[in-house]
Amino acid sequence: MTELSAFTGDDLDLILDTPGVVMKGAIVADGQKNALVFLKEVTAGAKEFRAAQRHENAFVKAVATRLRERGTDAAEDDRELPFDDTAMAHALKQAEAATAFLRERADAADADAYAAWILRIATVIAESVKTREGGFFSKKVAISDGERVFLELLEQAVGR
């Protein structure tokens, strides 16, 4: 098992900051600029962060617990609507860097669990609000096209 204490400085920051960055990327992936949608997505992400504090993988649990101790709560971290599309690109790049780093320096099971957790955060956010893809009279979908593309790219970025 990989101990979180084995990482320091920029390496530790990369591991700890990536879940929040992915959360922001997932929030903007649907392209909506709606405060209610934003609130639902942030709430879904925050629940996933809290659930990870009881994760079956000790490394993911340690990361989530450290985030809580550090005061980086997903709900507090996103005080404004992050409608900049660069958030998605940044999330993909950082997720790729963090998982590649962990695959080099951590236990394979821990790296896989971390990558799966990153994907879970984005998926939970994407599924938290049903949207109408084709306009007002269209059928609501669980995951928008933009979110689906983001999730597929994220899956590729983390090597799953």
Rank of each mutant, 00 (worst) to 15 (best):
E69W: 08
F59K: 05
F49K: 00
F59R: 14
K47Y: 10
K40V: 01
V63L: 01
V22G: 08
N34S: 02
P19I: 00
R68V: 06
V21I: 15
A51S: 09
V37D: 07
V42S: 02
L16I: 07
A26C: 05
E41A: 06
V37M: 03
V22Q: 09
F59L: 07
K24P: 04
A51E: 01
I15E: 05
L12T: 12
V21Y: 09
K40T: 04
G71M: 05
I27W: 07
L36I: 07
R66L: 01
F59E: 10
A75V: 00
G20K: 04
A26T: 09
L39V: 01
A51Y: 00
K40R: 08
R66D: 02
L16P: 12
K33A: 12
D77C: 10
F38E: 06
Q32Y: 02
A35V: 14
A44T: 06
Q32G: 01
Q53I: 02
D17Q: 14
I15H: 05
E41R: 08
P19F: 01
D11E: 15
K61S: 13
K47W: 14
E41D: 03
E48N: 07
V22F: 13
D73W: 09
A44V: 09
R68C: 06
R50N: 13
A62D: 10
G9R: 10
H55E: 01
A52T: 00
A58D: 12
D77W: 08
L16C: 06
F49A: 04
A74G: 09
H55N: 01
A64C: 03
A44H: 15
G9N: 08
